[in-house]
Design a protein around this nucleic acid. Sequence first.
DNA 1: ACTATTGGTAACCGATCGGATACCAATAGT
DNA 2: ACTATTGGTATCCGATCGGTTACCAATAGT
Lengths: 122, 122
Amino acid sequence: MDAFSALADPIRRDLLVRLAAGPARVVDLAGHHAVSRPAISKHLRLLTLAGLTTAEDRGRERHYRLDRAGLTPIQELLAALAPAPPFTERDLDGLELEVRRTGRDRRATEADAAATIAEETA
Amino acid sequence: MDAFSALADPIRRDLLVRLAAGPARVVDLAGHHAVSRPAISKHLRLLTLAGLTTAEDRGRERHYRLDRAGLTPIQELLAALAPAPPFTERDLDGLELEVRRTGRDRRATEADAAATIAEETA
DNA sequence: ACTATTGGTAACCGATCGGATACCAATAGT
DNA sequence: ACTATTGGTATCCGATCGGTTACCAATAGT
């Protein structure tokens, strides 16, 4: 089972979103869905085969964890289909935060775009 | 049919990648696959229902085109599962190109991360 | 020791999927 | 007008999918 087919089911997508908040046991995950526990078990096994989750046995419990590395095939397809612009507004916001964190006192001319981005508002 | 299920089939993914290079007719797309032409037709109809492609009739031909807007559900899921860092190396590369394009003569100290990024190598 | 909890597996079922073949409609070329 | 090209639709088929119930193994709690 590949990652794409794994994402095709809405229950499996929901499981992944829940696991994004942290590891969880099967019963906890099953509690949020109308389907039976074995059905959730099957979904989790499938997600693990797809490389999207990992499982760790802790006593009688099994803790499932999101494995973000399994998402790369999807990210690669999106990159092939939706070529990203040089940088986005999001990137600029992130950059500004980073500069605010690492920056020191410096001056910038308004003619310089990069300096304007980096300028501290304080 | 939702976008996730649409991406679950490798032939459909290949069709989308080919359409990313520009619109194409059914026969052209079918020529690259071992399956029959009606099978390709079905895939294309499904992709259109999923909002991933659009079709335009031109005489007896039908031109299919990639509709990138249909990718947003997938992008949103990825964003929910793989929270992006403040900025990535990719962003820095893009930023550097942009600064090289708009930047003027300016000096930068090596203690300033943003300035280092923006520094022109020339 | 007994019991409850956790969770995987097996067997089965109906629905859906992906494919083929056969057929038809419409446009283009001669 | 005839013919070729393009492409959708219909019908059927086997395989897979997602779900259930029933069952079993193992650990934890008393």
